[in-house]
Design a binder for these strands. Structure first.
Lengths: 216, 216
DNA sequence: ACTCCCAATTTGTTATGGCAGTTGGCTGCG
DNA sequence: CGCAGCCAACTGCCATAACAAATTGGGAGT
């Protein structure tokens, strides 16, 4: 290991691969809330030393994707009811604005793309694949918001997605998901019609929906 | 250095002190945009090794307070005109909501406090102290938003403040700041009157203001 | 059977050193 | 005088090891 530190490959540095992998897992809800991660454990899994593992995990902590106890122990966060509602409110704020900004730039090619993603979502629903559902759902939103040409706002929205990932997945299990993405259809319809108020409402509902199934 | 690693004092770990100090400097605009920071340089300044320096700097990069080149070099960001406007739009979104949520809980004690901070701002203006002005200004906003009982939203707003810190300070220099905080007075008046639309408008103006002085 | 306590293990923190890529200035040529 | 190419210093990345705190588990005592 001393001989070949493998400095920079095609992609990025070592910790970046760890970071991206963990980030995707968390955002898609592949890790349950409360699961604790250790530096040496993550390092061993990715076959790196503690240093890049620490790097990746601390970055995720900074983004709110992981939470850290006072002693430095790191785990996926268990969100309180209040916090989850607050994060949903932030999503509503940001994503309504993103959708609104994307509206004037939404051509037919985009709408086709969204419809295609939407049928992909339905697939994941029938397969009962929670992580796949979340991934496809986020792809729908990201595809739309990319048109807003507002990278900082989109990044901020993704940070929120990251924070709610594990909890959303846990919620997914307990709600009987048989419904196809109704709100997404409303979004697409509003895009076609150029109906901004309708679009804002549909996005807000889609984002706020799914929080009415809590017991805490 | 090997003998006394000084593990954990009253406060937090070593990197945390570095982080907090740097963070405050950046948020208050004490560092100009484009200034580059090195691991060994920061480490030497705080009399620590590269490891905690790296920790703190990477965390700030993750929060958008610092930007990193492809080679890993870290510097304070130089924001484009578009990005600055986008960040201001995010501020408007979040802070209008925060103020609105704080309104029903704003009692006289809070308003007194805000007025006191406000006169402190005027002091900084006559002293021509840019960093002091920014610090007092942010304290005004934070004091108000704390009443909103929305920690995630407040944290997100602070992240934006962090990103615009150096640029705001650079802008401060080139705009002749003789005006006392007019918009803050409007905010206070709206709070007293319980006027929510007026409050939202005043906050939006205060947050959006100050971006009309760009040349880029 | 339950509680308390201590020791072994786990885990995070930091300093250090070697390695590789980057940078900036300097030399030498046109 | 200007520019290309090169070299030395600088800088970041990672593995490793020593250390301290926290956690855990079992054993002793009641």
């Amino acid at each position: 290991m001393l001989v070949n530190p493998k400095p920079s490959e095609a992609g990025q540095s070592t910790h970046d691969k760890v970071y991206r992998t963990l980030r995707a897992r968390i955002m898609h809800g592949e890790i349950l809330p409360g699961k604790s991660l250790t530096l040496r454990g993550v390092g061993k899994e990715f076959d790196v030393s503690m240093t890049p593992a620490r790097e990746a995990m601390r970055r995720l902590v900074a983004e709110g994707a992981l939470s850290m106890s006072l002693s430095g122990r790191v785990s996926t966060p268990e969100l309180s009811n209040e916090r989850l509602e607050e994060l949903a409110a932030i999503r509503a704020l940001l994503e309504v604005e993103l959708a609104s900004r994307a509206l004037p730039r939404a051509h037919m090619a985009l709408i086709d793309r969204l419809q295609s993603i939407n049928s992909g979502i339905t697939e994941q629903v029938v397969k009962q694949d929670g992580a796949g559902y979340i991934r496809a759902n986020l792809e729908f939103h990201r595809t739309l918001y990319l048109r807003a040409q507002a990278p900082a706002m989109l990044a901020m929205a993704e940070t929120v997605w990251l924070q709610i990932g594990p909890t959303m997945r846990a919620l997914y299990s307990r709600m009987r998901r048989n419904e196809p993405p109704h709100n997404h259809r409303l979004i697409i319809a509003a895009l076609k019609a150029g109906d901004e108020p309708g679009l804002r409402l549909a996005v807000r509902m889609d984002v706020t929906h799914g929080l009415r199934h809590l017991a805490t």
